[in-house]
């Protein structure tokens, strides 16, 4: 099984003429996206994925395999960055903006954990990664708004690498969603708030 090259809608901004850009996209169906150096056999329960005909893409950025679904939001940001090799601080900068937006919607106990995750308490709600070209960075993240976390265990194996705060926890114990944490916010409210905040970053 060979993954497709990443061409999902959020990647449009990577090649757009705007130097700085962002897009928040709600997937139309379920997709599995593996990291640049992941392989399908190590990351995915292949039979299950084949059976349900879920498309698998390989993104250009690092990190582990994720599931996209209509109950998640894909947040992508492109920034014009020149001659900067160390780009990890952009995780902090963009994730701080997302945390502020979610806090304004009333979500509490939000933290930045691991290298590039956002959590509620010690449970992950967002994972992100970066692809850097010499003149730009492409950040993208998946925010779990209301997806059932048991879906992850159904399709994805335990990752090879994990952040310290995961402490060996299974997908079900480690991941949560905004709804599961009793914040009954709809997609539009979340997307609107984060869009406003990212607009400020892009236009800065």
């Amino acid at each position: 099984m060979i993954p497709k090259s990443y061409n999902l809608p959020d990647f449009e901004i990577f090649n757009s003429s705007n130097l700085n850009d962002f897009k928040i996209w709600i997937p139309d169906k379920m997709y599995i996206v593996i990291g640049r150096s992941n392989n399908i056999e190590d990351s995915v329960f292949i039979e299950k994925v084949k059976e349900e005909r879920i498309e698998i893409f390989k993104r250009p950025s690092g990190g582990e395999t994720v599931i996209l679904s209509p109950k998640t939001a894909v947040i992508s940001v492109k920034l014009n960055v020149k001659n900067e090799l160390n780009v990890h601080h952009y995780f902090k900068e963009i994730n701080t903006i997302i945390i502020s937006a979610l806090s304004e919607l009333g979500i509490k106990n939000l933290n930045q954990k691991g290298i590039s995750d956002i959590s509620i308490g010690n449970k992950k709600i967002l994972g992100s990664s970066i692809y850097r070209k010499p003149d730009k960075i492409f950040y993208h993240a998946v925010l779990n708004i209301s997806e059932d976390v048991s879906l992850i265990s159904k399709y994805l194996k335990h990752p090879k690498k994990e952040p310290d705060y995961r402490k060996g926890r299974s997908h079900d114990e480690f991941v949560t969603s905004i709804n599961k944490e009793n914040y009954m916010l709809d997609n539009e409210a979340i997307i609107g708030k984060i869009s406003n905040s990212l607009s400020n970053l892009i236009n800065k």
Partner: peptide, 18 residues
């Protein structure tokens, strides 16, 4: 100078090194 040499991956970041 500036030609891309290698694509490297660290945790969460893939970068092309010039």
């Amino acid at each position: 100078v500036g030609d891309l040499l290698v694509t490297m991956e660290t945790d969460k970041v893939v970068a092309e090194i010039p």
